[in-house]
């Protein structure tokens, strides 16, 4: 197994401290145990038998964990190692139904294991667990080949839903705000919960189809784990290439995906980048008519997407 250390964790001490006299000793013990816990499981879902320095993991465990009459130190550590991985893989499983359907369960699990091994959680909340998955897919294209670009698109779309669900909101822009500042100087921000995505596949339709299939299957079967094996006939067909522009957002606390026309998407992107209103509007290109632009702005204001910068 790889010797690459999980991102953000400092190297473990060579041995567990024999006494805890200071907080630095406590830190050493905790660092060692954390390294053991975040290490990927074996194929049989067990603690890896060999530690990074070549010693048997059983010897490392016995150095700091007591055994009892039923369990060895190794087995006790293994309980925690398993709970760590099962908990986090479950979250990834639930948060990414589209990517899972695209890759299949096995490949998805391999991808998320590799992801969490490199990028363990750096946040107090599990909500952020998948925040670097899209980036990781780019870094390790082998794990999603031959559908890496599509997997990347689906992952961006699924992460945008997390953002749309509970990211903060600013007070919306009002008509009075628009009147008060001349367009050449007016800078408009977009709501933090809104994600603008330009994607090469209609992944919105794809993920909706996957969710509908899963809902049907849930209704048809009481077996909790029936979702793990999908017969071919029940698989949702991979989407065909086709450029789409999306705003993933919420409205009255419900999630929505709004298809955007390309010029509208470009104007919004320019606003998000901090360009003043008058200049951002030109990002839509020459073919755009003023009536179109004011129509878009009216919709965006209504949806509450725009706010003061």
């Amino acid at each position: 197994m790889s010797r690459i250390l999980a991102t953000g964790l400092k190297a473990p001490p060579p041995h567990a401290p024999r006494r805890l006299a200071t907080t630095a000793d406590v830190l050493k013990l905790q660092r060692l145990m954390t390294h053991l816990l975040v290490r990927p499981l074996t194929k049989q879902d067990g603690l890896q038998p060999t530690w990074i320095d070549g010693r048997p993991t059983a010897a490392v465990a016995a150095e700091f964990i007591k055994s009892n009459d039923r369990l060895t130190s190794f087995e006790r550590l293994q309980l925690y190692n398993r709970m760590y991985w099962f908990r986090l893989l479950d979250i990834m499983h639930d948060d990414n139904p589209g990517l899972r359907a695209l890759l299949g369960e096995k490949k998805f699990t391999r991808l998320t294991e590799a992801y969490l091994a490199k990028y363990p959680s750096r946040s107090f909340t599990l909500r952020n667990l998948g925040s670097r998955l899209a980036q990781f897919i780019r870094e390790q294209p082998r794990l999603t080949a031959p559908h890496t670009a599509l997997a990347h698109a689906v992952t961006r779309f699924e992460w945008a839903q997390t953002v749309a669900f509970d990211e903060g909101a600013h007070p919306g822009l009002t008509a009075a705000d628009l009147k008060r500042t001349p367009p050449a100087r007016l800078k408009i921000a977009l709501q933090p919960y809104l994600s603008l995505l330009a994607l090469d596949w209609p992944v919105d339709d794809y993920v909706i189809a996957v969710k509908q299939r899963d809902a049907l299957r849930g209704a048809a079967s009481n077996a909790v784990d029936s979702a793990r094996v999908v017969p071919r006939s029940r698989q949702v067909a991979r989407p065909r290439r086709g450029r789409i522009y999306l705003g993933v957002h919420r409205y009255h606390h419900r999630l929505f995906y709004k298809r955007l026309e390309r010029p509208a998407f470009l104007i919004l992107t320019a606003l998000a980048a901090g360009r003043p209103l008058a200049s951002a509007v030109t990002a839509g290109g020459r073919g755009v008519k003023p009536a179109q632009v004011s129509g878009w702005f009216a919709t965006w204001m209504e949806l509450g997407w725009l706010c003061r910068r």
Partner: peptide, 12 residues
């Protein structure tokens, strides 16, 4: 449950 800013999300 956390070390060096890495979270295990477990109660150790």
């Amino acid at each position: 449950g956390s070390v060096d800013g890495t979270y295990t999300h477990d109660l150790l």
